[in-house]
Design a binder for these strands. Structure first.
Length: 574
DNA sequence: ATAAAAACTTAGCACCCATGTT
DNA sequence: AACATGGGTGCTAAGTTTTTAT
């Protein structure tokens, strides 16, 4: 095991060294890229003869493609989305576009459609799939596809591709109250796909009888293939896996920018505090917004086109209705209450005392405005980012999130780690530090459906373990007194003592697990770990306390953070 | 200068499967 | 062997930032 590890380590250093030599000075360019192109979604199998669709109670024969479209709806029948009016309206509208003229005149009302038989069929199918053995599931076939299409060669290195499959057709499900939910997401064909690869590579071949939309050779961008999606009209890309050089370097760069912010953040903070007093409204707004972004780790908040997406906001797009001002609340002065839906329609709710000057400014911004008016009417993300750019090269709003997340982790690790704790307790401390960041960044999750139950069963395990400990201690006592009374062999005492110790450790482990899980109920740690925390902080912490890095990062994460694992020693300071 | 498009990062959730338990 | 459970992974939507067009 050990030799394998050190071999890997050497390989990594070697690889990075090689890359160093081969790379252009501008790290974003590649010189050679070869790949096999994307994998297309398989065609739907027609429904078997005995599965029918009913209209007004009568059996009805549908011909493709309408059948294929109806399939999506029946597959989702028990999903809460399908009970929403917008979903049904959008679905039916798009379905009608796919109907033959005969169907179109016949099928005029979604309420009269009965998909239950189709729905049952798909449920049965997925049940059946669960029973299948590995061969039946075509595991090997999938592995072969991964091997053939899942990798590319960039700058002479074989790299894993992130998403090499074209997204299959289906019904669009946005998050939150999305006006387009239920719309038909159409099938992507080779004719929709642009291929990007190097001029001198073997071009990926389109499936027989088809052609690509375009083959281009643009080495200033990192995607291998792209297509335009029909719901929002945005472009989707096929790109490399996070373990790739091109992503890893970018990630590293991101944290280096955040570290540069660390050096000038005091100055920037002094500056925006000063700007709270500015004569110009736009500067005051900019300064207050920046204060929120810095202090509360809010997102920038771009404007969004109304009716195209769910109504969510970030800092610059906050509206009057999203904040409440309390000159005094629960013994604290100048409290601002935030309540709005952010990215992914996740609710941000926070009551926070602010400086008097900020409070007065907010009152000023709210004057003569309606609930639906912008709080910062003289500000948007591009104004803000332009200003930030002047303060520091490469500074944008999101750098504050990265900086504050990483610095919080580092601080919390210092505060929470006690040297004499054992490994599980230290890992708990790490998770707590991680959790502080997740709370700061408002990374939430739905409590797991089985949460209560699994918590209970863990508790009963703990109780059982306590009983066991009690019994073991008693046995130890008996053994001790036996030794005294009968001059028996002390080996027995040793064994008993070891048993007590072992059980104590097990109990401790369970208790730590319970605490960890309880505190984690509604908080998602993964996002901050993956996107906001400089991995070198974690690696350094592991080295300092002799914690195996595997306790903190799983295999995928270790691959993504290979650069940091190689780079950081225990003295690393963010 | 501004708007729109393109490119790239961040996000939560469903599902799958290894693992441990009964 | 059947079952539960939780972590890992794939998926793709939803953001931010950068680039290009007007």
């Amino acid at each position: 095991m050990k030799s394998k590890l050190s071999f890997l380590l050497i390989t990594h250093i070697f690889v990075y060294f090689r890359w160093e030599e081969e790379r252009y000075t501008d790290g974003s360019k590649w010189r050679f890229l070869e790949h096999k192109g994307p994998v297309f979604a398989p065609a739907y199998e027609p429904l078997p003869e005995h599965v029918h669709f009913y209209y007004e109670g009568k059996m009805s024969n549908l011909s493709p493609p309408a059948e294929e479209v109806a399939t999506f709806f029946s597959k989702m029948l028990d999903h809460e989305y399908t009970t929403k009016d917008i979903f049904r309206k959008n679905f039916f509208k798009d379905w009608r576009k796919e109907m033959t003229s005969e169907e179109k005149s016949k099928i005029t009302d979604l309420k009269k459609c009965d998909f239950s038989e189709m729905s049952q069929y798909f449920k049965a199918q997925s049940e059946a799939r669960k029973q299948m053995t590995k061969e039946e599931k075509l595991v090997q076939e999938n592995e072969r596809i991964l091997e053939e299409y899942g990798f590319c060669v960039m700058d002479n290195h074989k790299e894993r591709i992130g998403n090499f499959r074209i997204e299959p057709p289906g019904l669009f499900r946005g998050r939150g109250d999305h006006p387009k939910m239920g719309m038909l997401k159409r099938r992507i064909r080779p004719e929709d796909v642009i291929i990007n690869c190097s001029k001198d590579s073997k071009h990926p071949k389109p499936p027989p009888g088809t052609r690509w939309k375009e083959v281009r050779h643009d080495n200033k961008v990192t995607w291998l293939a792209s297509w335009t999606e029909n719901i929002q009209g945005s472009i989707k890309y096929i790109m490399l896996n996070p373990s790739s050089r091109i992503k890893g370097e970018k990630d590293w760069q991101k944290y280096e920018t955040a570290r540069r912010l660390k050096k000038c953040v005091d100055h920037i903070r002094a500056q925006y505090r000063d700007d709270w007093k500015s004569k110009e409204m736009r500067i005051r707004q900019r300064a207050v917004a920046l204060y929120f972004i810095d202090k509360l780790a809010l997102r920038a908040g771009n404007e969004k086109e109304e009716g195209e997406t769910a109504d969510t906001v970030g800092c610059c797009s906050l509206r009057v209705e999203h904040i409440k001002l309390y000159p005094e609340l629960d013994g604290q002065d100048f409290v601002v209450e935030f309540d709005f839906l952010g990215k992914d329609s996740i609710r941000y709710y926070n009551k926070i005392p602010v400086e008097k000057r900020v409070f007065k400014n907010l009152q000023l911004f709210l004057e003569n405005k309606q609930a639906e008016d912008d709080l910062f009417d003289r500000l948007n993300t591009s104004i803000l980012n332009k200003h930030l750019q002047e303060l520091m090269d490469g500074l944008t709003a999101k750098v504050f999130r990265t900086y504050n997340a990483s610095i919080t982790l580092q601080q919390q690790l210092k505060v929470l780690t006690s040297p004499d704790e054992n490994v599980p307790a230290k890992v708990l401390s790490y998770n707590r530090a991680n959790r502080a960041v997740a709370i700061l960044c408002n990374h939430q999750r739905a409590p797991p459906k089985t949460f209560e139950k699994s918590m209970q069963s863990l508790q009963s395990k703990i109780d059982a373990k306590k009983q066991q400990l009690f019994a073991a201690k008693k046995e130890l006592k008996v053994a001790k007194s036996d030794t005294k009374t009968f001059h028996a062999v002390s080996r027995v005492v040793e064994t008993k003592r070891k048993a007590v110790q072992r059980i104590e450790e097990q109990l401790m482990k369970l208790e730590v697990q319970a605490t960890d899980r309880e505190e984690n109920k509604q908080i998602a740690l993964g996002t901050s770990k993956l996107n906001y925390l400089d991995p070198r902080i974690s690696v350094a912490w592991c080295k300092k306390w002799s914690i195996p890095v595997e306790k903190i990062y799983n295999k995928t994460q270790r691959e993504k953070f290979a650069w940091a694992i190689d780079m950081a020693d225990e003295d690393f300071e963010f």
